[in-house]
Design a protein around this nucleic acid. Structure first.
Lengths: 241, 241
DNA sequence: TTTCAATATTAGCCATACCTAAATATTACT
DNA sequence: AGTAATATTTAGGTATGGCTAATATTGAAA
């Protein structure tokens, strides 16, 4: 006589539930978007784990959930990484749009200092409504760039394809315009601001000191020379023209 | 030989964890603040349950957690209701301040219609920083009232002691100024707006139709008469002068 | 082609945060 | 003192999102 327990079903914990729509999900989608770059490539779970400071196992688990959504948020091939599915990309771009609009708004309308906008935007980006988004965009005149020089995705998700060069690519004597700086390190932003380095400013690499130690840089047309460490330079992107 | 399992400890689920600081907590604190009125009185768990549309059991559970916090957020006497402890009151007033500042901001700076501000504020109130709060307050010139006429708590938590009369207290022929209207029902707010009824407007009760059916009301100095149902009238508070 | 290190996935579990229904207890009246 | 209304406890559920350890896969070097 077959026990009723036979089929037990002892559902494992993985892929146990279904469709989240949370901050965590937003963060995964953003991470995948940012890591997959242009042109788009598969992102490994390890990279995501590293980026979000969690274990790879947690990532695999979440990726399976995201792929199982209807509609799916990511395309996930076991052992071969993920990329964003249409809905996931839409959401990622929406969040990034929120983030950058909020940063711009905080800076321009609420007079936040440059280095404080990121933290606030990072929280609020998940919670504002479509209406809020639309209203601040209108208020700001539908800006194309945030205070750090990052392009703001349009409502339809389109982003001007940027070709940001790492500043470190420059050779001594070469000049370039700052297009953007990383937005997530307040201390660095304060330092750059103090040196007069911000999007739009022209930089000339004066000399690169030995052993990758640091870079001496002329800011704008002034005679001011800024000394930038290797790690600082990583945060600066330029267009050469 | 005493089994090691002896003490079993089979911890029940109640009061199992400790210190949350979430939206749910905010909502409990707000509910208690609102229900406890002026002068302050104990609030029964049943009332809270009703207000938040959850079961009394859930309320008891949460109240125990809130009382066990360090510092305690509520003073809770079994079977005798709760009131807010100092820290809880501080938080409740902070949230209410957030809510009302955000409503005012949405209305005045972002041109939200009257009836849409509540929903957005209800979400954002939990997530804005001190700095955000301070900046919108400054931008608005430190307003004392939100768009529905509710007083905005000051930074120190002080609230002008309001003595809002229920409109329904008026007798036919009496006049009074609208001090505030409830903010949580968009449809009602649109109706009131269409009738020209908003904080600051003077109303005269023209006649009260039988069987508590409805109220005929003169709005301002116009000859306009508005017909208000019993339930609508519940949402209007006035000062008689 | 085999082997092996790097990487990814599975299985099982843990914790937090909320909530519920049903059983039980307390209070405050009559 | 009995009882109806209220409140609390008990036991357990659901959902999210994390972790470790064991295991499996992949791809490149030998």
């Amino acid at each position: 006589m077959a026990k009723l327990l036979a089929k037990q079903k002892r559902m494992t914990d993985a892929v146990r539930t279904q469709a989240p729509a949370s901050e965590a999900v937003d963060d995964y989608l953003k991470a995948i978007f940012q890591l997959s770059g242009h042109p788009e490539r598969q992102v490994a779970s390890n990279e995501i784990a590293l980026h979000l400071s969690i274990t790879p196992a947690s990532v695999t688990n979440m990726l399976q959930k995201l792929a199982a959504q209807e509609p799916p948020l990511v395309i996930y091939k076991k052992h071969h990484g993920v990329k964003l599915a249409k809905a996931g990309k839409r959401r990622a771009l929406e969040i990034i749009r929120h983030h950058r609009l909020i940063e711009t708004f905080l800076h321009q309308v609420l007079d936040y200092p440059w280095d404080e906008v990121h933290q606030e935007a990072e929280r609020l980006e998940h919670f504002i409504s479509e209406r809020f988004e639309e209203r601040i965009a209108a208020k700001l005149g539908h800006p194309k760039f945030d205070p750090h020089g990052h392009a703001i995705p349009a409502l339809d998700g389109s982003l001007p394809s940027q070709e940001p060069q790492a500043f470190a690519m420059l050779r001594p004597g070469q000049s370039a315009n700052v297009s953007s700086v990383s937005d997530n390190d307040p201390e660095m932003l304060r330092y750059l601001a103090a040196q007069g380095i911000r999007p739009g400013v022209r930089l000339t690499l004066s000399e690169q000191l030995p052993f990758q130690g640091s870079y001496r840089v002329r800011v704008g047309t002034s005679s001011k020379l800024a000394l930038l460490s290797h790690s600082l330079v990583q945060s600066i992107f330029v267009t050469i023209k």
